[in-house]
Design a binder for these strands. Structure first.
Lengths: 203, 203
DNA sequence: CGCCTCTTGTTAAAAGTTTCACATAATTAG
DNA sequence: CTAATTATGTGAAACTTTTAACAAGAGGCG
């Protein structure tokens, strides 16, 4: 979140920000920001604040996103294709260098210059290319199988876009992405507002 | 998350689950699950567990996703179009009934039978259609403007897919969606694993 | 050069969340 | 019908996170 907000400040040409300004923008407490940043090092200057560009670099270095990560995508359906076509990935440091699917009709197909390869060849291909992160975009019932293939290929992390939990060895990191969770959250907030209060005055 | 996991159990034909089984699947503590569910009501049966279908319904009712929500999308770029074409929205209870953009070249264009309307006509159109939730898929520097239009139209909640923070009146709920946060999280975990430990034995 | 102002980094207190442990209730078997 | 078994719902303890308060350091001005 901080990177996102700091990039906005950078675009606007603001060279320095205080924890207070950052806090107002992110809707959090200034102490929170100072704590979070201090966890990684002393990035600020007392009496002055944080240099926007320096802070962006420092956070990116701390998170390990100051380099390019090689990624593979498994499951070339609607969502998979949309992600493959999304330029932002490379720009943000995640290069999708291979795409896999088990559907014979899809194998051989090209999506923005990337050939869809059979999932059975994932292990060798991913190793040859030195892939470190896998993106799962299969239907939910195929997610675990995709995950197993990725683990075999000695991938180090997985982003699972399929709406299903997967089990993995402890040393493989996973993040679940499902924006319907956010839609549910908004639905819940609105619903709470509109529901009659449990105990109103004079009740 | 629970809905997601329970739907998987339902597909597999499992009629009843215990908090322990749910916990193993979600990688959390069984007490956590019982606490979370107990917050909304007594959905389980002592000595038996939770009825999968009943629990899904109960959670959905609690979250307010047991009905259809009318949504409007602002910003018909790559991401916007992808979302408009995504069938899952309607299936999950979120019906996108209007699409807006300020680009004259896009206005009038049709995306799966939905006409792109000028953002300036958002207020009247959204009110006429009874829209409650807005989806922002503009570039980051347009997100606030889109949000302002949505607030004018008396929308109750916003999902912001643009990588920018927005400020809103307190009674409008907002959720930020940016899956790069998840990519960053995985990058960080892998990086931590690989970085030399701060203080090793005999150091 | 020293004083004043400003804002960080950090310690301690407050608030919140997660886990444990067990009483309570439902079901099944004898 | 009673006892044994099982798994929920919940109050209290352990742990984590957030907030407040302040000492320490940087820059500017007289």
């Amino acid at each position: 979140m901080y990177v996102q907000v700091l990039e906005s400040f950078k675009r606007e040409g603001t060279p320095v920000v205080s924890s207070e300004l950052l806090a107002r923008t992110c809707n959090v407490n200034p102490s929170q920001i100072r704590k979070d940043l201090a966890y990684f090092g002393e990035f600020g200057v007392r009496g002055v604040g944080y240099h926007v560009q320096d802070l962006i670099s420092a956070i990116k270095r701390s998170l390990g996103v100051d380099r390019m990560w090689k990624c593979a995508l498994v499951g070339v359906g609607n969502l998979g294709k949309a992600l493959l076509r999304h330029r932002e990935f490379k720009y943000r440091g995640f290069d999708i260098v291979a795409a896999f699917d088990c559907d014979p009709f899809k194998i051989g197909e090209e999506v923005i210059g990337l050939e869809v390869v059979c999932t059975r060849r994932l292990k060798e291909t991913a190793r040859d290319l030195g892939i470190e992160i896998g993106l799962i975009t299969t239907p939910p019932d195929r997610a675990q199988r995709a995950a197993n293939f990725l683990v075999e290929a000695e991938i180090k992390g997985i982003i699972n876009f399929a709406p299903a939990r997967i089990t993995l060895p402890a040393d493989v990191h996973v993040e679940y992405v499902d924006f319907f969770h956010h839609l549910y959250a908004v639905s819940f907030s609105i619903t709470l507002d509109q529901r009659p209060k449990a105990k109103a005055i004079g009740d």
